[in-house]
Design a protein around this nucleic acid. Sequence first.
DNA 1: ATGAAAGCGCTAACAG
DNA 2: CTGTTAGCGCTTTCAT
Lengths: 349, 349
Amino acid sequence: MPEQTAGSRPTLEAVAARAGVSRATASRVVNGGAGVRPPLVDKVRRAVEELGYVPNHAARTLVTRRNGAIAVIIAEPEFRVFSDPFFEQQVRGISRELIAYDAQLVLLWVEGPGDHGRIARYLGGGHVDGALAFSLHHDDELPSVIRRARVPAVFGGRPFLPGGDGEPRVPYVDADNRGGAREAVRRLVSLGRTRIAHIAGPRDQTSALDRIAGYHDVLLDADPELIRQGDFTAESGARAMAELLEHRPDVDAVFAGNDLMASGALRVLRESGRRVPQDVALVGFDDMRTVVEAVDPPLTTVRQDIEGMGRLMVRLLMRVLDDHGANGSRTGSPASVITPTTLVVRASA
Amino acid sequence: MPEQTAGSRPTLEAVAARAGVSRATASRVVNGGAGVRPPLVDKVRRAVEELGYVPNHAARTLVTRRNGAIAVIIAEPEFRVFSDPFFEQQVRGISRELIAYDAQLVLLWVEGPGDHGRIARYLGGGHVDGALAFSLHHDDELPSVIRRARVPAVFGGRPFLPGGDGEPRVPYVDADNRGGAREAVRRLVSLGRTRIAHIAGPRDQTSALDRIAGYHDVLLDADPELIRQGDFTAESGARAMAELLEHRPDVDAVFAGNDLMASGALRVLRESGRRVPQDVALVGFDDMRTVVEAVDPPLTTVRQDIEGMGRLMVRLLMRVLDDHGANGSRTGSPASVITPTTLVVRASA
DNA sequence: ATGAAAGCGCTAACAG
DNA sequence: CTGTTAGCGCTTTCAT
């Protein structure tokens, strides 16, 4: 343990003095040591060690204009933040990747539109180098708030693009919802099913929309009766399944917009005396552990690499930041990233 | 929307110039405006408005030595267990209170002992003014890591005090686990029950220990056979209840260390053909919504104000910080806070 | 390859 | 009450 006087911590000046070099050289060593002769590098390193020197972040930020911190914006209504496994995994990915970049995670918790002013002020105040936010509902104003703050940002999940005209596109990271949905439906088709229904997620979320699109990609002329609206909860899945059974009792397969709705549908299916997968095959989406394996039969579903998406959000943001730094103005909006999904076959289809 | 040139943001200098005052006066106004004549205050305020001035945080920190940021340290293993409302509510309370103090929340995610070095470096690096952490298992090293970093910290939940000798006591905020347990057991006594069992939480967590102590406070000479070990999971509650029924089939009341264990016990109780509360009365702890109301009969339990505890952690930390600032050295370790619990009577007891 | 010196934007004595 | 003047600790030209 390096000793350290109670009040003030050693400065670069002290390190330089101890190593018998100038502050400039000490600085160079601390920042990688490029272009400094090995013997001096060693001397400085040793001084740093002995003094227990840690760079003063504020001083460094003041001159470099880099904070080494990025904001993660969490909108309360949307997520039961830490209890939602989805969200937890994403934040874990972000946190891990940020550590690799030696950047800090500043959590901005938004409880409602009333907080937008505060968020805008903070973001605009140059406290963080960039922001990470999550795709929300169609009518959420947060994206505009972030954009107006002129802080480089990356979204998790494809955002609804406001206006749509000359607006700068925000880069985002999303799973291949559409492709995943196609795979799910194709699986059902390959099983010989011909009356394949879809229990859709809420229309104001792009992930739900994209999954619906994927369904239609495969089933070009699907009977509208076979498509039912849910809201991503198990309850809504059960309700949708009940409707389905009423209007199209001949249904022989269901692609649910997520695992939760699939679990609700499964319950109703069994209550109606149907066997899964024999009578009705069922595929979900998300591969949410707690649901997928707790259910009988275990659910065939589409997996997305959620933690990986979190990591990618960080990488993408860092690239945007580098562009900013390099030539002053953007090199053009960086491409968004769509991560692949994989079909996980279990017993339900 | 105040205009703003792309690259650099306006400085205090610019504000001062525009308002026709010195930088010092502008600074005074920005920081509350005490001791500045109203007309000047107005002028400066207007200039700030027109220029869209936002103080540079780094520059301010550099001179004041205050970051306006506090770290919230989350230890991964723990976090999973608490993946329920508990943790989320606490962080929400912290976040809300921090906003009131205009401080930022820096999230430090600890995945294991391997991260201790990084955490120590960060904390020791003066990036944050203080830290908030949560009470962990007996053998967790995090508390020592934090203490060694010499950063003012407050714990959520009474920590195991290491060493125990001249070590500085860390202030903490905790619910009155012992008192709550007493209330729970007294309720059972008041119902005329005479063979009251306790399903205890893990012995390496102070909350579990305190609840056991509360049980003993009321039942001074309880039969050791009536106390069974669980680990705060529903499964362990079921197991403990089964053992209980085997050794003491005459049991007529159970105080479970938390609601999850109570729910497991309830299931076993009913499988054994006993009626709750008629044959066996049951009280839980935590008042965890999702469990307490989902269960039949609804659980009588002990409620703690979790969000409030989060807020108190922040207030306590701020007080510690003020003490530090005021006279250079601590005024003495600030008192910890124990928040009251309340018995919530439902149908199970 | 190294050092000297000029700030980054702000606050806090200290004068006036 | 207001302005002047030093820095806070660090990076970064610019000379050498």
